[in-house]
C-alpha cells in the first residue's frame, strides 16, 4: 500500500497535518493496511455483510413532539455565535 495518499484522505477527513507529520503517519498507515491485507485470503463469496451484530429491525418512534433544547446556554458556550445563530467564516466554497 505504498500508494496511500495521505494528503487526499486527510483533506476528505478535514484533518490538517504538518509536513513533519506526514511521513511517519503515511508509513504507519501503510503498515496497518499491509496488516489487514490478510483478509484477502478469506473466501467471502455469498456471505452477507454484518452491519449489526444482532437482528433488530423496524424500530420507530411515534410522531409526537418533545421539548426542544433550551439553546441559549448552549449558544453561550459555542465556539462562535451571534444572536441565536452559530457563526462560521464566510462560506466561499460551494456545497458538495
Amino acid at each position: 500500500m505504498s500508494s496511500f495518499d495521505l494528503r487526499h484522505v486527510a483533506r476528505l477527513a478535514r484533518l490538517h497535518f504538518t509536513d513533519a507529520e506526514l511521513k511517519p503517519f503515511e508509513s504507519q498507515l501503510s503498515k496497518i493496511l499491509g496488516f489487514v491485507e490478510e483478509l484477502k485470503e478469506v473466501n467471502v463469496d455469498g456471505v452477507e455483510p454484518t452491519s449489526h451484530p444482532l437482528a433488530v429491525a423496524n424500530v420507530f418512534r411515534a410522531d409526537e413532539p418533545v421539548q426542544s433544547l433550551d439553546v441559549e446556554p448552549f449558544l453561550a458556550r459555542a465556539p462562535k455565535a451571534r444572536g441565536r445563530f452559530f457563526e462560521v467564516p464566510k462560506i466561499i466554497e460551494d456545497r458538495s
Partner: peptide
C-alpha cells in the same frame, strides 16, 4: 476491498 470485505468476514 476494505470496509465491505471486513463486514463479510465479520459475519463469519
Amino acid at each position: 476491498a476494505y470496509y465491505l470485505r471486513a463486514m463479510r468476514v465479520r459475519t463469519l
